[in-house]
Amino acid sequence: MAKDFYGDLRLGILGGGQLGRMLIQDAINYNVNIHVLDPDQNAPCKKLCNHFEVGSLSDFDTVYNFGRDLDMITIEIEKVNVDALEKLEDEGVLVYPQSRVIRLIQDKGLQKQFFKQNDIPTAPFHFVSAHEGLKQIEWNFPYIQKLRKDGYDGKGVKKITSDADVSAAFTEPSIVEEMVDFEKEIAVIVARNDAGDVSTFPMVEMEFNPEANLVEFLISPSTFSIEIQQRAEEIAKKIANDLQIVGLLAVEMFLTKTGEILVNELAPRPHNSGHQTIEGNITSQFNQHLRAIFNLPLGNTATRDHAVMINVLGEDGYDGLAKYEGVEDILSLEGVFVHLYGKKFTKPFRKMGHVCIINKDRETAIKNARYVQSTLKVKA
C-alpha cells in the first residue's frame, strides 16, 4: 500500500447505489478518503462520501478524469468504461477488481468461455449472434436466453418455451443455455487479496421472486451436506485463483437434483447474496472486500448465528415517493435488522432495502423472516 490510512488514501467507487453505500459504511472505519461517481444526483452514496461527482460510468473521459488523481478505484457495478480503467492502471492507479476481470465479466459469453477453458462446471450453451440464430438451436423447449451484455437484477434473461417465445426473443448477441433442473440456487462469496490469500464465506441458499427474478429470500448457513458445501466453496476458490482477481467475487451456482454443481454467473464485487454477513458473520462481505483491495489479512468468515436475508422490493402497482409500512411491527421482533437504502422513489420490484433476521434457532429465524416478508411493504 503506497499510502497509510488515516485520511491519506483516496479511494474511488464507481457507482453510488446501495452496495457503495454499505461499502462506505465499513470504509469509514478505515478513515479513507472516499470519492464516488454516479449518474444519479440523488444516489444513495451522495451524503456519505467525501466527494460525490455526477457523471456517466460508461463515458471514457468522465471515468478517466474521475480516477486520475485517486490512489485506488473499485466498483459496485460492472457496467463501467473499462478502457478508461486500463489507462488509469497504466498510469499507476490501482484498480480492483482489475480492468481485465471487469471486461470478462461484462460479457456473459466471455464468462462461459472462461468456464470452459478452465474446466469449471456450467450448463451447456451456444452463442447466438442474431435473432435468426435461435431458430437454428436444436434443443427441445424450454431453454434460457441471456443477453451477453448489460443484463442485471434479472433483466436480460428470457425463458424460451415455444416458437412464440422465439419470435419475441432478444435480437442482440446472446447465449442460450439448457434449462437446468435444479434443486436449489446457491452462492459462495470468495475474496482474494494481492498477496494471493483466498477465503470463502459459507455457502448460502437462495429463493428468487418469480416475477422480478431477484433474490427474495436467502438463508445461511446451508443445511446441505458438508461435501456439497465444500465442493461449492472449492469451485469459488478455483475461479478466484484462475482469474487472479483482487477483491470480492460472488459465484452464483445451481445445485441440480442429481447433486451436480453448475456455475451460473459471476459478480466481481459485493453482492446481494452476501448482505446477511453484516450481522450474520464475524466479518461482513463489505469489510472483506476492503481488506482484499487494501491487501490486508482476510477476516474470519464464520457465521455467528442462523441468518435470513429478505430483499425489500417496491410493491407492484406503486410508483412515486416511497412510503414504508410495517417497520415498527417487524422491529418488535428480536434479532431483526433493517437496512434502508435511501432511495427517494419506489417503483415495482425496485430494491429499496433489505432486512436481516438472526436467531440461534434456524426454524425461528425462518418463521420471523416470513413475518417480515408479509408485513414490511414499500408503497407510494
Rank of each mutant, 00 (worst) to 15 (best):
G55M: 12
F52A: 11
C49Q: 11
K47F: 12
Y64A: 00
K79H: 15
C45A: 15
N42C: 08
I75G: 12
E78M: 07
T74N: 04
K46W: 04
K47T: 14
N65C: 06
V54F: 05
G55N: 10
D61R: 05
E53T: 15
I75E: 08
L57T: 09
I77D: 02
G67N: 03
H51I: 10
V54Y: 05
V63F: 02
I77T: 15
G67S: 03
N42S: 13
P44A: 12
L48S: 14
F60S: 00
N81E: 02
N50R: 04
N81K: 00
N42Q: 15
D69K: 14
S56K: 07
E78S: 08
R68M: 08
K46Y: 09
K46S: 08
C49V: 15
V80D: 06
C45W: 08
D59I: 02
F66L: 04
C49G: 06
T74Q: 02
F52T: 11
M72P: 04
V80P: 02
D69F: 12
D69H: 15
C45F: 01
H51K: 15
S56F: 01
D71C: 03
N42H: 15
G67Y: 03
E78T: 11
G67T: 02
V80A: 03
S56R: 06
I73R: 07
F60T: 01
E78H: 07
A43Y: 11
L48N: 12
K79R: 11
N65K: 12
L70D: 10
A43V: 09
I77R: 06
D61S: 13
C49D: 07
N50E: 06
L57S: 03
F66M: 05
P44R: 11
S58G: 00
T74W: 03
P44L: 11
K79T: 13
M72N: 03
H51S: 15
L48G: 01
K46N: 10
D61V: 02
N65F: 03
K47M: 14
Y64D: 00
D71L: 02
D71R: 01
R68D: 05
I73Y: 05
K47R: 13
N42A: 13
F60H: 04
C45P: 09
E53I: 14
N42P: 01
F60L: 02
R68I: 13
F52M: 08
K47G: 11
Y64C: 01
I77C: 05
E53C: 09
D61M: 08
C49Y: 10
T74F: 05
T62R: 08
P44N: 12
I75N: 08
K46D: 04
K79Y: 13
K79I: 10
S56N: 13
M72K: 14
C49F: 08
H51T: 14
E76S: 06
G55W: 12
N42V: 05
V80K: 07
D59F: 02
F66S: 03
Y64F: 14
D69P: 01
V63G: 01
L70R: 10
P44V: 08
F66H: 04
G67F: 07
A43D: 13
G55D: 12
F60G: 01
F52D: 12
K79N: 13
D71P: 04
P44G: 09
K47C: 10
V63A: 01
E76V: 10
T62K: 12
R68P: 00
I75D: 10
F52V: 11
V63M: 03
Y64Q: 02
F52Q: 09
M72E: 10
T74Y: 07
F52W: 07
F66N: 05
H51M: 07
